[in-house]
């Protein structure tokens, strides 16, 4: 039994992912680290739009990353009435993770997708 527990596994995979930077991320990283800093932290969603797009680009490549960003911008208004509210850094935000949006691209049904119940447990 050499494998670490779930919570540790999450941390390890995210730190590994942080070290691997693909060219697909470059425009989204620019958007997040340059444009967003000038624009200010005003996003009401969690993860923020740019972080969402960055994660999508990492997972699906630049083109789909861009489409996911457009999708997030379009569906934010309605989503703020449906998504659960969480507190991040002392501010209330609407929780809309990539896992809850790209499951259909991963070809997973409700029970097959172990992330489907993630935030409730």
């Amino acid at each position: 039994m050499g494998a670490p527990p779930e919570e540790l596994r999450g941390r390890i995979s995210s730190s590994d992912a942080r070290n691997e930077r693909s060219p697909a991320e470059v425009p989204f990283r620019f958007l997040k680290e340059v444009i967003s800093r000038v624009d200010g932290p005003r996003c009401s969603m969690y993860p923020t739009d740019t972080q969402f797009a960055l994660e999508a680009a990492k997972r699906h490549g630049m083109i789909l990353g861009l489409f996911f960003l457009v999708d997030r911008l379009f569906h934010e208004w309605s989503e703020s009435k449906r998504a659960p509210v969480i507190v991040v850094y002392g501010k209330e935000r609407f929780y809309d993770p990539l896992d809850g949006n790209d499951f259909w691209l991963r070809g997973k049904s409700l029970l097959e997708d172990s992330t489907a119940y993630g935030f409730q447990e």
Binding site: L66, D71, H75, N101, D102, F103, L110, A116
Partner: peptide
């Protein structure tokens, strides 16, 4: 062109999301 294709993508993505929410509520 980006907004137009993004609109189609977003519709499809949100349809899957709608169906999943329906299932989760039923479950």
């Amino acid at each position: 062109l980006l907004w137009y294709t993004g609109n189609i993508f977003s519709s499809v993505s949100n349809t899957h999301k709608h169906n999943r929410q329906l299932l989760q509520e039923w479950s």
